[in-house]
Simulated assay, not measured.
Amino acid sequence: MPDDNQVASFDPTESQWQGLQLTDKAATQIAKLMAKDSSLLGIRLAIKPSGCAGFAYVLSMATEIDSDDLVFTHQGANLYVPLKAMPYLDGTEVDFVSQGLNQMFQYNNPKVQSACGCGESFNV
């Protein structure tokens, strides 16, 4: 019988990933950002512990490739994801949406079990 106090572990290099997908709108927005800054290789999507639900998405500009990055490309736009984030992000569709005056990247993550009320954080 397993000990309930043990934490499960995994080796991310031994998994087969579905990957992440960029919608056409997300790829277009990333390509626009890349065109404005010649040092920009794409964007990086990671996660960090945060909020009441557990994790938050972290989006940053990718100006260099990290040794553990996986790259997902669509229409010339690059999305970099650290290997350690894949167990939480695998299968996610990244979209770019407009809501009123706001424009933002939106993450359709099939692994999300719950999210906080404000939408700041999620749990898998």
Rank of each mutant, 00 (worst) to 15 (best):
L40G: 07
Y57M: 04
G51F: 06
S50Y: 11
D3R: 06
V7K: 15
T92H: 03
L79K: 02
D24S: 06
T13Y: 13
A115D: 15
L79G: 09
G76W: 03
T23L: 09
S98H: 13
D11L: 00
V97H: 09
A31M: 02
V124Q: 15
C52G: 11
D90C: 07
N102K: 14
L45F: 06
P12I: 05
T28Q: 14
P49S: 06
V97W: 10
N109H: 07
I30E: 14
D95W: 07
S121Q: 07
K32P: 07
G76K: 03
G100M: 10
Y88N: 11
L33S: 12
T63F: 14
Q16P: 01
D95K: 03
M86N: 04
A56K: 04
V58Q: 13
S114N: 11
K84F: 09
P2E: 08
T28S: 14
Q75I: 03
L83T: 06
L41G: 04
S9F: 06
F55K: 02
K84Y: 13
M104N: 15
L20Y: 08
F55G: 01
K111N: 14
Q6G: 03
N5P: 06
S114D: 15
N78G: 00
P87N: 05
A56E: 08
S60H: 05
V124H: 15
S9H: 06
C118D: 14
N102S: 14
F72K: 01
V112G: 11
S39M: 05
L22S: 03
N78K: 04
V71M: 13
S38A: 10
G91H: 02
S121K: 04
Q18W: 02
F72Y: 12
L41N: 03
V94G: 11
A8R: 12
H74K: 07
N108V: 15
K111V: 07
A8Y: 10
C118I: 12
T92C: 00
G91W: 02
V81N: 08
S39Y: 06
M34D: 10
L89K: 05
N123K: 03
L22R: 02
A27G: 09
F72I: 01
Q16Y: 02
D68R: 00
G54T: 01
D69A: 02
D66A: 14
D68P: 04
Y80K: 00
L79E: 08
P82K: 00
L83Y: 07
F10M: 07
V71T: 10
L70F: 12
D11H: 01
P2Y: 08
K32L: 12
K32W: 05
Q103E: 15
A53V: 02
A115P: 08
Q18A: 12
L83F: 07
Q29N: 02
D69I: 00
P110W: 09
V94W: 08
P82A: 06
G51C: 07
V81K: 08
D3P: 12
L40F: 03
N5C: 04
P12K: 00
Q99E: 15
W17N: 00
D11C: 04
L101K: 13
N123Q: 10
Q21E: 12
Q18R: 08
P87V: 00
G76A: 09
A62Y: 03
N109P: 09
E120S: 15
P49D: 09
F122W: 08
E120P: 03
L40P: 00
L22V: 01
L70V: 00
N102C: 12
A35T: 02
M104W: 13
K25D: 15
S9T: 09
